[in-house]
């Protein structure tokens, strides 16, 4: 034990439906862990439990040794966990840059007078940070555009950038490349790789695209019907008979 994030024996029921059943998972600092599994296997539910959107029925979630259970989503983000959503949850009426600035919110000075006055020096610091992300994700041409007007591929990047703007220790990506073209997937793979390499952020991601997942992940876990059926290196997990059964049927 002693990983960055420890999920222990986690269960989540919705009425009679068991979304997660006794899932345990440990995320070590600096790794890229992929969670795979067919539709409805509980991947997103797991994310929602970690980020405080769902309250698990039983089990434990520990972040750097402290429990996250009962914390609100904003408190969890402030402790260094950021995420993206499968179906994107952007602020469509704000510009790309403002979307990133919202991500900076938790680093703004806490005191109310400063919040009201937008102190010059601090403002510039946050803007600069956002510009770094803009440059990193090639968002330069659209930085002033309204996000709602941007194409889907760009929106995916904005959401990634917004999560990065919170300067997390752990980044949760929910199907980062779903709906993207092959070319965009390649780009995204590069960015995820760089996020770990250049920014030193631990990444936990859920992905449907097994090829993408196995190329990026240093370790992999598979879920099916809310139960963890395999864990190990990408090669091991993909060859695991349970995983093959889950994906291809009997």
């Amino acid at each position: 034990m002693g990983g960055l994030l420890e999920v222990g024996d986690l269960s989540l029921n919705f009425g009679g439906i068991k979304a997660l059943e006794g899932v345990s998972l440990s995320v070590a600092e600096g790794e890229t862990l992929a969670v795979i599994g067919p539709n409805g296997s509980g991947k997103t539910s797991l994310f929602n439990c970690i980020t405080g959107i769902y309250r698990p029925t039983s089990g434990a979630i520990a972040w750097q040794g402290e429990s996250l259970l009962g914390s609100t989503p904003d408190a969890i983000t402030r402790r260094g966990i950021a995420r993206t959503f499968q179906n994107l949850r952007l602020f469509h009426n704000l510009s790309v840059l403002d979307n990133l600035m919202v991500g900076r919110h938790l680093h703004f000075a806490k005191n109310l007078a400063n919040a009201m006055l937008r102190l010059r020096g601090e403002e510039i610091r946050h803007r600069r940070r956002c510009e770094e992300i803009v440059e990193f994700l090639n968002l330069e041409p659209v930085r002033k555009s309204r996000v709602g007007d941007c194409p889907y591929g760009v929106q995916k990047r904005v959401e990634l950038g917004r999560a990065l703007a919170t300067e997390p220790k752990l980044l949760l990506l929910d199907e980062p490349v779903s709906g993207l073209t092959q070319e965009e997937k390649e780009e995204f793979g590069y960015w995820v790789h760089e996020i770990r390499g250049r920014f030193g952020i631990t990444v936990l991601f859920v992905e449907h695209d097994l090829r993408f997942a196995s190329r990026l992940a240093s370790r992999m876990a598979a879920l099916d019907h809310g139960v963890k059926i395999a864990e190990g290196t990408p090669a091991e997990v993909q060859r695991h008979p349970e995983v093959i059964k889950a994906y291809l049927g009997e």
């Binding site: 609100t72 904003d74 983000t77 950021a82 995420r83 949850r89 602020f91 704000l94 919202v102 919110h105």
Partner: peptide
């Protein structure tokens, strides 16, 4: 505009 997104960004 999007309460849940705002929340997961630490607001």
């Amino acid at each position: 505009e999007n309460l849940m997104a705002a929340q997961t960004l630490g607001i």
